[in-house]
Amino acid sequence: MKTRIILLVDSSLFGGIESHLVQLSQLLVHHNVAFEVLFYQQHNNRQFYQQLEQHHINFTVLAGTFRALYQYLKQQTQPVVVHTHGYKAGILGRLACLMQRKAVVSTFHAGEIGLGRVKYYNLLDRISSFLSINFAVSQPIAKKVHQATLIANFINPKALHYQPVKSVINIGYVGRLSSEKGPDVFLSLAQMCQYFPQFSFHIFGDGPLKEQITSVPSVHYHGQCNSDEIWPKLDVLIVSSREEGMPMVILEAMNNGVAIISHPVGAIPTIIENNQTGQISKGFGASCLKNALLHWFYLAEPVKQQQILAAHTKVNRDFCGQSQFKQLQQGYHKALEKVANRLTSTHITD
Rank of each mutant, 00 (worst) to 15 (best):
Y70I: 00
Y72Q: 03
Y72D: 00
L73S: 02
K74L: 09
Q75P: 00
Q76G: 01
T77V: 00
Q78W: 00
V81F: 05
V82F: 03
T84H: 07
Y87E: 08
Y87P: 04
K88I: 12
K88V: 09
G90Q: 10
I91H: 05
G93A: 09
G93W: 05
R94P: 02
L95A: 13
A96Q: 07
R101Q: 13
K102S: 00
V105S: 03
V105M: 04
S106A: 14
T107K: 03
T107F: 06
T107G: 07
F108W: 05
F108M: 01
F108A: 03
H109A: 03
A110I: 03
E112F: 11
G116C: 02
V118P: 00
V118E: 15
V118Q: 14
V118C: 04
K119F: 10
K119C: 04
Y120A: 02
L123P: 00
I127N: 04
I127K: 14
S128F: 12
F130T: 04
L131A: 15
N134W: 11
N134Q: 12
N134T: 11
A136N: 12
V137K: 12
V137F: 06
S138Q: 10
S138P: 06
S138L: 10
S138G: 14
P140S: 14
K143D: 13
K143P: 01
K144T: 13
K144H: 12
V145R: 11
V145G: 08
V145N: 13
H146W: 15
Q147R: 15
T149A: 14
T149M: 13
L150K: 13
A152M: 07
F154Y: 14
F154R: 08
F154C: 09
I155K: 12
I155E: 13
N156W: 01
P157W: 10
K158R: 15
A159P: 07
L160F: 11
L160W: 09
H161W: 06
Q163Y: 08
P164K: 11
P164H: 11
K166T: 14
S167A: 14
